[in-house]
Write a protein that binds this DNA or RNA. Structure first.
Lengths: 339, 339
DNA sequence: TTGAAAGCGCTAACAG
DNA sequence: CTGTTAGCGCTTTCAA
């Protein structure tokens, strides 16, 4: 039998091509360092044997894996979906593999996953992490890490800035005569939620808008639907939600009650997830370019991952900023005149 | 300096615990084979050093990686989202890592990805693959593989059966006096699309329903929206769509035109993706338990992956079947009486 | 129960 | 340009 059942190794190829293992190795990684004749023989032998270099052995010897890890709170959340898609595509294009891990929105799980992933990856992308900054710095000290979403002291981050667009949103509402605006807050645990609370409050104050708050509330349509009664009583004529999902729930429930959107109430979401286009009428929202953020993070990692040895902490803690933009669709209108 | 910058290896622990590397290795993998005292010392040393066994080296020695690969057409498609989420969660619970790869619905890419993944995983899950059965058998010969969606000769598969529910759907429509039913077909390339075409045609024939077909059409809301004019002219009073996304587009466009759903037209989707609940009114649909299918596949893999040596082709080509069910929501009603 | 030694498959100096 | 040698970090006989 010529065809052994074992997967062929570099030695098999070497034997068949009558060269040493090193030469085979070189033929694959640095063809220019091997004589044409030898190269041909090696390739032929490899071909015949169906040889494929074992990436594991390669990683061990090289001390780098070529893998990148992506840790995120919820892979099923439409906000993150494009991130995963794009990063996975680009990772592949770079000749690497992507390990994804979903934390189920738990900081405890997040830590476990990071620990598990770190030894198997050359770089780590943490999208909207829930971990303490201190923990994040710990990860970054062990493997090149970049956080996507907000700045973390001492860690490379790609910041998705929404503040100007949130302010602008309130400004526009003001111009449309809305002076009582509802703010549907995000989940208690998320860092972005706090941040957005602050942005909204200070912008409202500056503009002399009275901000009526609900929440904290979990990220779910139901959250948006649940506030409708109170919101209608409150006198608010416009609402901004922590994200599209909550906004979607609000819009749907308002219409279900026979109210007009934007006729009776204007609604604005944040994220520009797929939901905002599915919403009827299409949701006006603030686009947060999470996918671009992920790609940016990946490029940063790729640069250091290509360095000769695996030097830890080689990623300088610079902070890149990507701006959001308002996507004006169909849920905002001038305040209805009293009758 | 006690704290070296290098990540500690098994040797460091061995030295600190004054035992051999073998003992440390055993302490971690087979604690019962090492004396209590030694065990304690090893654990203490490991703790102090912050030692974590290097999974790469482990894989190389063990000749298995502990990783499982998941290849699917489109990670951003809400139909697949729960699959990814559940499989990733369960994978993690099994102490393994998940490598996901998105083929962008291309069979060419699918093949490349499989090639790239195979050497790094102990098992492969191919969800709704586009590859030729021959190619799939090739993968399965190299690494334990299970296909989720439909049967593939010679490969372990988890079949998501929808036929009885499709027939039942038409039966119900018939009872509701619909005798002209529209069928919005899926994309040309997908194997399931053909299958569903056949199911619908034979069921319609049996029931004496006249089936009006549109498509093939891409999986997109627009596809559903685009057929509205023709559909209304055709006299069809009910429509079944290849999937929820197309059905969603249809419902939305119908209502946009001022038509009632289900008052004027009944609509049924397939999949029970998140979209069916987002739809207004909520979409009646056939639930395809893709997530369960993925989990089932994973369990099958896990069993063989735990086998001592990595034996290829160790997965018997049995075919498991998971049944769909009709989820009756709000888009089906009795046929409107002519006036 | 434990250690020494060989090996998993590949890479990287270092001579030649 | 090429072979030899010595690992990468861990597991696993095989003896003791």
């Amino acid at each position: 039998m010529t065809s052994s059942s074992r997967t062929p190794t570099i030695k098999d190829v070497a034997a068949r091509a009558a060269v040493s293992a090193s030469t085979v190795s070189r033929a694959f990684s640095r063809p220019d360092m091997v004589a044409e004749a030898a190269y041909q023989r090696v390739m032929k032998a490899a071909e015949e044997l169906g040889y494929q270099p074992n990436p594991l052995a390669r990683s061990l010897a090289l001390r780098r894996t070529g893998n990148v890890g992506l840790i995120l709170p919820d892979i099923a959340n439409p906000y993150f979906t494009p991130l995963v898609k794009q990063v996975q595509r680009r990772t592949r294009a770079l000749g690497r593999s992507l390990l994804v891990a979903d934390t189920d929105q738990s900081d405890v799980v997040e830590n476990e996953l990071a620990e598990a992933l770190i030894p198997q990856v050359d770089g780590l992308i943490m999208a909207s992490p829930r971990s303490h900054p201190e923990a994040l710095r710990g990860f970054a000290a062990r493997v090149p890490t970049v956080v996507v979403g907000f700045p973390v002291e001492g860690v490379r981050s790609v910041i998705l800035r929404t503040r100007p667009q949130m302010t602008e949103t309130l400004t526009r509402l003001k111009h449309l005569n809305h002076d009582q605006v509802a703010w549907l807050r995000g989940p208690r645990e998320a860092a972005v939620a706090d941040e957005r609370d602050r942005f909204m409050r200070s912008a409202a104050e500056e503009l002399g808008i009275s901000l009526l708050e609900w929440g904290p509330m979990p990220i779910a349509q139901e959250s948006g639907a649940a506030v409708v009664d109170e919101l209608l009583e409150s006198g608010a004529t416009a609402a901004v939600a922590f994200n599209d999902q909550i906004a979607f729930g609000l819009v749907t429930e308002l219409r279900h009650r026979g109210l007009g959107v934007p006729g009776d109430v204007s609604v604005i979401g944040i994220d520009d997830s797929i939901l905002s286009r599915l919403c009827v009428p299409a949701l006006t929202t603030i686009r947060v370019p999470i996918a671009s953020g992920g790609l940016e993070a990946l490029e940063a990692l790729d640069a250091v991952m290509n360095l000769p040895e695996r030097r830890i902490a080689s990623l300088r803690p610079v902070h890149t900023v990507i701006s959001s933009e308002i996507v004006d669709r169909a849920t905002v209108a001038v305040r209805k005149v009293q009758r």
